[in-house]
Write a protein that binds this DNA or RNA. Structure first.
Lengths: 123, 123
DNA sequence: CAGGATCCTGCCGGATACTG
DNA sequence: CAGTATCCGGCAGGATCCTG
């Protein structure tokens, strides 16, 4: 698994730094669901069947590395693993909520704009 | 992070939708500087010499497509082009500022965490 | 000065199969 | 259930040269 390399922190660009934390394709939505309560691996899979186990693991591990989420393994049978926001991770909460609200409010508009734009060029 | 697919808005995932708008590698910092005042192409190049003209054009055009920035061409010699936030783009302001502050506040911590993590694994 | 045109590459994101 | 182990294609991101 020679995956996640992810640049140090994108020096001299604080906005970029923040983006390296939340910028994975699924991280936003994962964080959003973690705001509410701790979640299990399988819960995420049910919420978003499109995420493969591999990607889910990858994104969660990166969030864990960055100190955003905590991974708690319960030594039971069958195994259970719960992911929760750390105190550090909770400092991101206002931003995640803003992003959710903004996306909900303007998603349709964006979709229109992008469709128009895609139609104009290719001829 | 990677922009997803260019056209679709990542259905059913408002946080992801927002990320498709601001998630380009340089978009965050571009938006941040646009918050203050309109900027010229060359200004950005001076602020961040690491951005190639090609990438700068690309990212600005995407922001333009999404209705976030306005591109004003002044028919002068030498040519002058100014980029400014649209009213729509200004709705992102609180989030950009939050991202900047968060990045400034926790960049060092993240850098440490990632360095530690990178040192532990590779053998 | 502000870009277009071209070509290239590396990692991101994914598919699939297997396991403690 | 909650992951690994491999393999891989595509596109974001970049380098370089050229132009209105």
């Amino acid at each position: 698994m020679r995956r996640s390399k992810l640049v140090p922190t994108l020096e001299g660009c604080p906005v970029g730094t923040t983006l390296t934390v939340i910028g994975g394709k699924w991280k936003g939505i994962l964080l959003y669901h973690l705001l509410e309560e701790p979640r299990r691996f399988g819960e995420f899979r049910k919420l978003y069947p499109a995420i493969t186990p591999f990607m889910l693991t990858l994104q969660l591990r990166e969030l864990e590395r960055d100190g955003i989420v905590h991974r708690e393994v319960y030594p039971e049978v069958p195994p259970r693993v719960e992911y929760s926001l750390t105190e550090f991770g909770k400092t991101l909460a206002p931003m995640i909520l803003f992003m959710k609200n903004w996306g909900e409010a303007h998603g349709d508009r964006l979709k229109r704009l992008r469709t128009q734009h895609a139609e104009k060029k290719p001829e």
